[in-house]
Computed example of a mutant assay.
Amino acid sequence: MKILVCIKQVPDMESRFKVAESGTWYDTTDLAWRMNEYDEYAVEQAVRLCEQEKDSDLTVLSIGPDKVKETMKKALAMGCSRGVHIVDHEAYSRQPYQKAAVIAEYARDKGFHIIFTGMQSQDQASAQVGILVAEMLGIPCVSTIVDFAYSDGKIEAKRELEGGMKARVTTTTPAVISCQLGLNTPRYPTLPNIMKAKKKELLAVSFEELLKVDPLQETIEMYIPEKKGGGMILEGEAGELANRLITILQEKTAVLK
C-alpha cells in the first residue's frame, strides 16, 4: 500500500507576529518553527495505517525553503519511509490552488492509495489544499475527519461538521483524507528513530518543475486588526439599569431615537 502525507512548516503560534515590510506576509525574523498541528494528526494516522497494513510505503511531502527539512525529519522519525522536499523559497506567497496543483502533479503517476493532509494550516487557514488535490486528481475526498478506519480498500471515517455534529461516511481508495484536531494522539519520536531518520531518503524536487498553473488570486495587503474598545459593566437594580442602558444606547447609537 502506498501512502502520501503532506505537511507544512509553520511558526510557533505563541510567537509575537508583525507584518513584514512587504505588507503581504508576516515578518519571519526570529520566529520558532514547527510542524503544523493539524499535519501532526495526519502523520500519526498515516503511520498507524502503515503499521496495520504490512509492506506499506509512506512518503512525507513538504513545500518550502531548505529549513522545512528539519520539520520533515520529525515526520521521518515518527515513521515515514522517505521524504520529498518540493523546494520553493517563495512558498509563503503561493496560493492554495498553486500548492495543490504541485502536490497533485507530483502524486499523479505515483499510484498512492491514500493521501493524508491536515485540515488546514495554522498560518493561512485556507482549508483548501487537500480538497483541491482530490479534485485535481479526480478522486474522492473526506475532510475534517475525527475517526478513521481502513479495511480491504474501503475507508470508513467520521467527519466533524459545523455546530459540533458528526457524520459517518465511507469511500474507496484512492482518496484524499484531511485530518481534524483530536483524530488521534501524535507520537513523540524516540531517540533511536530520530537517529534512523537521518539515514532515510530525502528527495528534492523544484517547485517550478511541477507548477503547471497560474495563481488565481493575489494577496494585496496584510494588517493586524485594530483593537476594539473595552466593555462596560453596569451594576444596580434592574429598573435603574434598564434606564441607564437606554440612555447609553441613545448617546452612542441611533437606537431608540
Rank of each mutant, 00 (worst) to 15 (best):
A134T: 08
A107F: 00
T71G: 12
A149N: 14
Q122H: 05
H85G: 03
S93Y: 11
G64Y: 03
S93D: 14
A134K: 04
D57H: 15
T117L: 10
K54M: 09
I63E: 01
D152S: 08
L58C: 15
G130Q: 00
F148A: 00
F116D: 06
V142T: 09
V129Q: 01
T144M: 12
M119R: 12
Y106L: 09
L61Q: 00
G130V: 01
Q52T: 15
L137R: 08
G153P: 03
C80H: 07
S93E: 12
E40V: 02
Y92F: 13
Q98G: 09
E105T: 14
T117Y: 05
T71E: 10
K158S: 13
E70V: 13
E44Q: 14
R82Y: 02
V47M: 05
I139P: 03
V87L: 07
K99W: 08
D66Q: 10
A101G: 10
A91W: 05
E90Y: 12
V142F: 05
V102P: 04
D152C: 08
K74A: 12
D57V: 13
A107D: 00
G138H: 08
I63K: 02
V84P: 00
A127V: 08
S81V: 03
D152M: 09
V43I: 14
Y41G: 03
S143W: 01
M136W: 02
S121W: 01
V84L: 03
A157M: 07
D123T: 09
I139A: 12
A104I: 05
V133Y: 01
D109A: 06
I86F: 04
I63A: 03
A75H: 07
I131E: 02
A77N: 09
G153E: 00
E105N: 13
S151C: 13
V60A: 05
L132W: 00
A107T: 04
I63D: 00
S126G: 06
P65A: 12
A157R: 02
K110V: 04
A149M: 11
R108I: 10
V84H: 01
Q52A: 15
Q45M: 10
Q124K: 13
D39S: 11
I86A: 06
A127S: 12
G138V: 11
Y97K: 11
E51A: 15
A134L: 06
V87M: 09
S151F: 10
R108T: 10
C80K: 08
D55N: 13
V102S: 05
L58I: 14
S151W: 08
K73Y: 10
M136C: 06
A157H: 04
A91D: 09
Q124D: 13
I114Y: 01
V133F: 02
L49T: 14
N36L: 00
K110Y: 08
I145W: 01
R82M: 05
T71M: 11
R48I: 15
D88H: 07
G83I: 02
R48E: 14
A42N: 03
E70A: 13
R48S: 15
R48N: 15
A134I: 07
A46K: 05
K73M: 13
L132A: 11
L76D: 04
S93A: 15
D88S: 11
T144I: 09
I131R: 04
L58F: 11
F148D: 00
G130P: 00
E51V: 14
V102K: 01
K69P: 03
T144L: 07
